[in-house]
Design a protein around this nucleic acid. Sequence first.
DNA 1: AAAAACAAGTTGCATTTGCAACACTTTTGT
DNA 2: ACAAAAGTGTTGCAAATGCAACTTGTTTTT
Lengths: 211, 211
Amino acid sequence: MLKTAMFRGLSASDVQKIANCLSIKKEKFNTNETIMSYNGNSTRIGIVVSGSADLVSDSYDGSRTILERYYENTLFGELFAPYTGADDPVVIASSPCEVLMFQSKNLMSPCKHACDFHDIFLTNIIHLLMQKTRLQSQRIEVLSCRSLRAKLMRFFELQAKDAGSNSFILPFSLYALADYLCIDRCAMQREMKKMREDGLIASKDKKIELL
Amino acid sequence: MLKTAMFRGLSASDVQKIANCLSIKKEKFNTNETIMSYNGNSTRIGIVVSGSADLVSDSYDGSRTILERYYENTLFGELFAPYTGADDPVVIASSPCEVLMFQSKNLMSPCKHACDFHDIFLTNIIHLLMQKTRLQSQRIEVLSCRSLRAKLMRFFELQAKDAGSNSFILPFSLYALADYLCIDRCAMQREMKKMREDGLIASKDKKIELL
DNA sequence: AAAAACAAGTTGCATTTGCAACACTTTTGT
DNA sequence: ACAAAAGTGTTGCAAATGCAACTTGTTTTT
């Protein structure tokens, strides 16, 4: 049925039992479709199976902040991120994507007939949560840099590490990158220009190379 | 033996079994003592039982960044936060504190004699991890604000919410607050002065009131 | 095939912020 | 009890950054 890290090490029949037990539903979304709204009392948990999604918050002044970015096997839901701003953050598909969704209470108090595979499933969930905290830590690491240049360099270094190469393609547009780094796009591109002039990077459109 | 959310719902004897199974050790630290260094290959996991600790990164130029702040029942360890900067981040007690520590591999592949209480324990760990992601999300929410004033207001609002009152005492010094918000302390205090003048807040030392 | 929407790139100018250098008070250590 | 260290509060000035207003090129829509 469903190939995802959440079910790693479990047989098809075990997966089926768990899916029934937790009332897991699979849903598909197109780019820019709304997947979930964090309206203050949502208790659903989602996991991205394929594609990607962003948690975004739009301000009245038109600026958009990407609060979190969800890739394959990322857990998401308001329980993980109870933002308190005036505006309700929204999870939006940033590419066509499939997600599994279930109610958190089913995870927290699983059915009584505790079976062997429950341990495996819970351990899988722990792995995914640890992965999530790692990604959040990376985000914090980048945002904690004091200057535009430092933010960009830290982000580029992480991307290069993921790509296993000094050159890579940005995973989003320069507009979205500025939103992700919480900086002004024009200022960002000005700084990238300086970094090119200083011989730190080579870049053209979304292609970046660390020198 | 050990009162912590990690063992919620478990009998003393079950706790003892789990503590043996995972080789959990309890340690005490005084303020400013180093609890753990994230040196690139640390696989220990800690949990704060009492007191608090900070994950800090000191730059060559003398500035210190508080990457994360660990309160009671917060899980920590390099596995959760594989920072890649040149400097090794270090976990330091910010007040006298007690922590439990164990090797992560023991969590991920618990002993073979799978007992009832394993489910409870794993569910507790999941709760703690979710709590951790919530705190990280708050941090990201604050850091994603574009101006000093917005950062301060968002942080103050979160503190007021926690305190259940419009007035509260800051959980750390103004130096540390500036580090936590990743901004210059002097600029921060200048902005707080303006906020006082604008009638947004009243503040004196570490006491803040939202108006 | 034209029009519209989106993305990348650039620059001047005003504002915000960081840095440095202070004074003053409170806490800590011996 | 005294000295040292840490914390709070302030300000001028320089540098970094945001904002607004553009141009150009590339997709997407009609």
